[in-house]
Computed example of a mutant assay.
Amino acid sequence: PMETGYRIGPNGSNIPRDIIRRFACAYNGEEVFSADLFPAVSANPFIAFTLVATTSGTIDFTWTDDTGRTQTASAMITVN
């Protein structure tokens, strides 16, 4: 979950900001889309892009946050 840095935690101090800074998409290992995100991004950003798939393969999605941690997801696509 993303944090704006403005919420107060249970100990009375601000919860540190932690937002998505970069989103990238790779198709069969080759980066085909990326976006650098900034503090004004919504808590649940909707990102749309187009990709022409010429062969079956894997699409990998990677999110990187303020602290440098990454989270990934993958999807297999089949082209007939």
Score class of each variant (00 low, 15 high):
T67W: 08
R22K: 14
G29A: 07
V41S: 13
I15H: 01
A73C: 06
V79E: 01
T54L: 12
G12H: 02
S74C: 01
E31G: 08
E31H: 11
A43F: 12
S42K: 08
D18A: 06
D65T: 00
P39L: 09
E30I: 10
A40T: 15
I15R: 07
N14R: 15
R7H: 11
Q71N: 03
V79P: 09
V32W: 09
V79Q: 04
V52Y: 14
W63K: 00
D65Y: 05
P1D: 12
C25K: 08
N80E: 14
V52T: 15
F46R: 15
I20V: 13
L37G: 05
P39T: 11
I19L: 14
T62W: 00
L37Y: 09
S56W: 03
P10F: 13
R22N: 14
N28W: 08
L51T: 05
F46Y: 14
I47G: 02
G68Q: 03
A35L: 14
F61C: 00
F61W: 03
A73P: 04
P16V: 02
F61K: 00
F49Y: 07
W63P: 00
P10C: 09
I47E: 03
D66G: 02
P39A: 11
A48M: 08
I8S: 01
A53P: 07
N44I: 07
F33G: 04
V79A: 01
G5H: 02
I20M: 14
N28E: 12
P1F: 10
D36L: 08
P16C: 07
T4D: 12
D66E: 02
F49R: 00
A35N: 10
D36W: 02
C25T: 12
N28M: 13
A35S: 13
I77R: 05
V32I: 13
N44D: 13
V79M: 05
D18G: 07
I8H: 00
G57A: 03
R7Y: 04
F33I: 01
G12S: 04
S34A: 07
I77N: 08
T62A: 04
I8C: 04
D36F: 12
I15W: 01
M2E: 11
G5L: 04
I59C: 07
V52Q: 15
I20W: 05
D60W: 02
T72W: 04
I59K: 02
T54F: 11
G29N: 09
I77Y: 01
S74T: 06
R7S: 15
M2F: 05
T64M: 07
A53T: 09
M2L: 08
D60K: 05
I20K: 03
F33L: 01
E3Q: 12
T78M: 11
E3Y: 13
R17D: 06
A75N: 10
P16L: 09
V32H: 07
E3M: 14
N44Q: 12
D18P: 05
P1M: 13
S34W: 03
P1V: 10
E31S: 10
E31Q: 15
M76R: 13
D18R: 10
D65C: 01
A43C: 10
D60M: 06
S42I: 00
N14T: 11
D18C: 11
G5F: 03
I47P: 02
R7F: 13
A35M: 09
G12V: 00
L51P: 02
R21C: 06
G5K: 02
R69P: 00
M76T: 15
T64I: 08
S74D: 06
N44V: 09
S56V: 01
I8W: 06
